[in-house]
Amino acid sequence: MKQLITLNINGEQHELALSPDTTLLKALRQELGMLGTKRGCDTSACGCCTVHLDGKAVYSCVVYAAAVQDCEITTIEGLGSNGTLDPLQEAFVEAGAVQCGFCTCGMIMSAKQLLDEQDHPDEEQIRQAISGNLCRCTGYTKIVDAIKMASEA
């Protein structure tokens, strides 16, 4: 039943034996122990599981792991380098954009795509970019502030 697949995650190759219906979210959390990507709903509606496939933010709960073997997968663990955080991560801390933090990693991944594609987005573009990520703690105010802050860094 299981098949051998190879996933390219944060620049590293991972070989896994998975049943074909394993989602990327399950592969990350349950097979690889990469717990930064969260499960909030499993129905592509909350955004907690957002990762990048070739630089585009997607919900990993509705992507089969076996179907993304040709993609470069980036998770929250892949942000920043050499022990320094990504400016978005710094800005989320600095702005007080983190409360319970369960949405945070997905939120940062959605914002990351925006800032990768656009240097100085305006507030409406920022709100649009994170409109697929739900947050119940912050009212999004300080999240928007953080993304603005990172875009100006």
Binding site: L35, G36, G80, Q89, F92, G96, V98, F102
Partner: peptide, 21 residues
Amino acid sequence: KSVTRPDAWDKVTGGRGYPVN
């Protein structure tokens, strides 16, 4: 004073301390 949340550093890099983990 708006002291920075110490847990924020962990939460922006993955967040280890949730019961779900």
